[in-house]
């Protein structure tokens, strides 16, 4: 095993723990990310696997396959954040509305 593989594995393990910590009370998210990081470690240890997999589904190189998956993951993640932002905006609006009504004044001096 080369030093770069070792470094990647250490990184993936740390990220896996971090994801587990951040995703409190989210079993599905924890399982998903643990699975992803395990898969990552497997690909790091046996790099030829990605190419074999890519060729199996008609993509030439393993790096290409990873790139395609990465693009999908980035967009999906981005959209999740946008949806979350809209939800937060909505909550903030309701809070501000409550404050405005609570602090309303009749005939201000």
């Amino acid at each position: 095993m080369s030093w770069i593989q070792l470094l990647l594995i250490v990184g993936l393990v740390l990220l896996g723990f971090l994801a587990g910590l951040v995703l409190r009370n989210k079993l599905f998210g924890r399982l998903f990310f643990t699975g992803m990081f395990l898969l990552g470690i497997i690909f790091v240890v046996w790099p030829d696997l990605t190419t074999a997999l890519a060729q199996l589904i008609g993509v030439n190189r393993g790096t290409d396959l990873l790139l395609y998956l990465l693009i999908i993951a980035v967009f999906f993640g981005g959209l999740c954040i946008v949806a979350k932002c809209r939800q937060q905006d909505r909550r903030m609006t309701l809070l501000i509305r409550k404050l405005a009504i609570r602090d309303s004044e009749i005939n201000p001096k």
Partner: peptide
């Protein structure tokens, strides 16, 4: 609006006309 007959409400932050 001083001295006018009006109900005055204020959003602490700008939200937009719809809000």
């Amino acid at each position: 609006l001083a001295g006018l007959r009006v109900h005055y409400l204020r959003h602490p932050l700008n939200l937009g006309q719809g809000a």
